[in-house]
Write a protein that binds this DNA or RNA. Structure first.
Length: 328
DNA sequence: ATAGGCCTGAGT
DNA sequence: ACTCAGGCCTAT
């Protein structure tokens, strides 16, 4: 699943192939990928075809190109999100047809069979948005000013960002992120810390995998209420998330192919470096107790019962504790 | 604050 | 045939 580090790898991969290029044609293979496009495929084509891509910016898991539009007063962004299974691929020669191998062996999976939309560039290359589950998307959004007046995100020349990304908080690799302020906003809420780490309006870029990893690293259990955290501990969790995503980004280079922007989250870094996510039943690398999988808010959650302490009974009691007498 | 919907392929 | 994977948006 592409989270902040994987999306940043995609941004860096797309950068040299797209910046300064003009989009000659938008090829829509499955209009569902344009779900968030106001006006549908026609409006997207109208807004994009013939215009130049000037910058590629990321905030959290949102990516957008700035569109250089001649004769338009309102700046537009071409926004994309990878959802769960989205990949952007670069095809160096878009006129070359990719044929499935004519093997007598079983049918090799055609990587392009989930191609949903392609941008054909004046370089002769095309970039393909491939997305099996179509949780991702591509759409245009008007540029507005960032409320804090800081640089909008990674790769941004200024403080302008798409209206659709205005509600997205800064991520932990953003120099303008104010960690103590984020920690305070976490402590002001009673929800479980994992829920808060996944709340894009508090801090962006963290998904299920890095939330579990950050909480493991900070020895904190997923169901600890934000309000039960000290400022010091909340900050430690944020630093842990920052650290694990920073290291993942460094390792992201290994699974990156120069020709293809490859977002295969389950190969490379993940298999070797995860301590909690996907390791249910395996020994904790820190204390040896078996990693436990539970379901939290409809998502799988992984923690070590040995070294990730359960919430201590301070502040507001849990709902279950409130509804019964404590047997102690 | 929380639940449902969007999606499809792999696994049981 | 059913379950699971889950980011983000909308509705309750």
């Amino acid at each position: 699943m592409p989270e902040l580090p994987e999306v940043e790898v995609v941004r860096r991969g797309l950068l040299p192939h797209t910046i300064g290029r003009t989009v000659q044609r938008v090829e829509v293979l499955d209009a569902r990928i344009l779900r968030r496009q106001v006006g549908g495929p026609d409006r997207l084509r109208e807004a994009v075809e013939g215009n130049r891509l000037s910058d590629l910016v990321r905030r959290g898991k949102f990516l957008w190109w700035r569109l250089d539009e001649s004769g338009s007063d309102v700046g537009q962004a071409l926004v994309t999100h990878l959802g769960m299974s989205g990949q952007w691929r670069v095809r160096q020669n878009s006129t070359a047809t990719v044929l499935p191998p004519a093997d007598s062996e079983g049918p090799a999976p055609d990587p392009l069979r989930h191609r949903r939309v392609s941008l054909h560039l004046d370089s002769g290359s095309a970039i393909d948005l491939i997305d099996q589950r179509i949780f991702g998307g591509l759409w245009t959004s008007p540029l507005i000013e960032a409320s804090d007046g800081e640089i909008a995100g990674a790769g941004s020349p200024d403080h302008l960002l798409p209206a659709d990304a205005a509600g997205i908080a800064r991520d932990l690799l953003d120099p303008a992120a104010d960690l103590p302020a984020i920690a305070r906003s976490i402590r002001a809420r009673h929800s479980a810390i994992k829920t808060l780490l996944l709340s894009q309006d508090l801090v962006s870029g963290i998904g299920n995998i890095y939330a579990d990893e950050a909480l493991w690293a900070a020895r904190t259990r997923f169901d600890t209420p934000g309000s039960a955290l000290t400022q010091r501990r909340a900050l430690a969790i944020l630093r842990a998330a920052q650290d694990v995503m920073g290291r993942a980004l460094e390792h992201g280079g290994t699974s990156f192919d120069a020709l293809y922007v490859n977002v295969d989250g389950r190969s490379g870094y993940f298999a070797r470096s995860l301590h909690a996510y996907g390791r249910a039943g395996e020994p904790c690398t820190r204390c040896g107790k078996l990693i436990r999988r539970t379901v939290h808010q409809g998502r799988s959650s992984h923690h070590c019962p040995g070294c990730q302490r359960p919430p201590t009974a301070v502040g507001r009691p849990s709902a279950t504790a409130r509804s019964r007498k404590d047997p102690q």
